[in-house]
Write a protein that binds this DNA or RNA. Sequence first.
DNA 1: CGCGCATATCCTCTGCCTGAGCAAAAGTCG
DNA 2: CGACTTTTGCTCAGGCAGAGGATATGCGCG
Lengths: 312, 312
Amino acid sequence: MERRLVIGLNVVLAAVRDGEPVVLCVKRPGGWGLPFGRFDPEDHRTFELALRDFVERQTALPLEYVEQLYTFGDRGREAPRASLVSGDEADRIVSVGYLALSSDALTPSLESAAWRRWSTFFPWEDHREGTIRSSADIVGQLRQWAAGDEALAPRVDVAFGAGEAGWEEENALDRYELMYEARLVAEAHRDRDGVEGPLLHGEAMISDHRRILATAIGRLRGKLRYRSVIFKLMGEEFTLRELQESVEAILGFDIHTQNFRRGVESANLVEKTETTVQATGGRPAALYRATGLSEAPAATGLALPRFRGTVL
Amino acid sequence: MERRLVIGLNVVLAAVRDGEPVVLCVKRPGGWGLPFGRFDPEDHRTFELALRDFVERQTALPLEYVEQLYTFGDRGREAPRASLVSGDEADRIVSVGYLALSSDALTPSLESAAWRRWSTFFPWEDHREGTIRSSADIVGQLRQWAAGDEALAPRVDVAFGAGEAGWEEENALDRYELMYEARLVAEAHRDRDGVEGPLLHGEAMISDHRRILATAIGRLRGKLRYRSVIFKLMGEEFTLRELQESVEAILGFDIHTQNFRRGVESANLVEKTETTVQATGGRPAALYRATGLSEAPAATGLALPRFRGTVL
DNA sequence: CGCGCATATCCTCTGCCTGAGCAAAAGTCG
DNA sequence: CGACTTTTGCTCAGGCAGAGGATATGCGCG
């Protein structure tokens, strides 16, 4: 029997809801995963059209901003579980991952779909005040695991910001991969049929979906600094505090309010409207909206600070 | 007849030779293009292995650093020419583009393969002193083309650094795409069967290979700033001037020597060796080598300045 | 109405990094 | 030896980012 080549499409649809970064998840037999569908070359002219089509059909949510992430083609990606897309175990599945951003996080029509927080899957990526951190000392565990290996030890330190460079929020994938290698996430045991250890972090996802999510988080975080994508997550009008909270949600740490304002206002990406809103019990805030400049594909992003706290 | 799905692999293999950025090209019936091969799921476990396999077989060049760029899935990508990978016009071809870096630019075994300069295809991307620039005023032509369109005009200015952000070397793809839309490159006429205008810039490539090359150039340039990839283009040992010239070749503009040295030395990515070399008729230069830190996947790159000249 | 409170907004100060250039060191060439 | 070239070390000024003080403008309450 000939093995056919099948292309699957995965999407990380991200949004910020009530100041929390969330991702659209779908409940499957094996656990939670990302929405995905099969790409049929007969039906669709481009990947993006196919993606929009099946997401809208599955969840009734329209996709606004869409960006390709990565194509995963390794054999055994779906193993040892049965193929989830085609049902035909003999097919070779290649999957193209996408990142999509939504400004409103509407309730999906599908029963089994739900918005879930990033921090459910990546508690160690959130360093904002007042949020629950990962209880255990991940870096300590990784250091112990890497001890003695000359190549591994610096990788751990660099990825988790123990070096002079400090914590870089966009390295989410490196961190996840190290934890996978060190068997600190459930997927590592599942994929290799090993016994689960007691020190697992975050909730697992089916297949390699948590890896795709880590890729998306890292990409989005990095892009905030050099492209004006943040506005894809905002409504038409917003206060500077809302903008800041969205940025903080994505980056995973708090930033200095006054400096943030200074940076935003000098970037010419937003313009003040006439109206103000009173939502917090303090002084009313002016509403802003994105300017035309922010629409240009090559428009730069906001000047954002680095996380200066300690991870340990 | 059923249309089959075929996955093709493209690779932009880049190197620096004599201070010039070059890319491995293959001569095909329709002109020069990038090396590519078909991915056969029976033979290869991963894309990367397939890639290494066919490049080494075609050119006898080993691939060192390899990184996935983008997956191109639009129907009609190869049209209106016949399918180049499979020969079967009815197949749907999806192609995965890769960036590979080589430190030595060995002569390929294949007769029809050759290292060619980036500037052949993108003369407007090179702003170093003493290099030939694009003679005509591209920005002027684009501005004229975009005149009146409210969305287009800022796109042109942002992409070509006319705005306050200035020229950003990593936006090579945006610039190429604008020129394509404005029909300033031969591919635009070829793909739409139009008449060629007199104002074409750079040499064309087959299919969408020049677009893939633009993607690779932009990606590599951007990555220099936040990852230590530059050392993949250097030999084992090198002088700081050689390092600088490689960086300048990739970025496409000259940088201040003393400041470059200061940046490199404070980044802890290189260490001085005992030896010095005399190659230039001036004071002998110390040889350096990359440190172990530069091997970590998340290691940051060099602090590099921005181009401060004018493009017009 | 005046007061305390909360948030938004404005402004200042300081240290560090970057851009720019001078100058010495260490060779070659004639 | 003197002119020239390139490497290497060092200084200095301007600008920007981090940090925090101070003011503005609303609310709720006595």
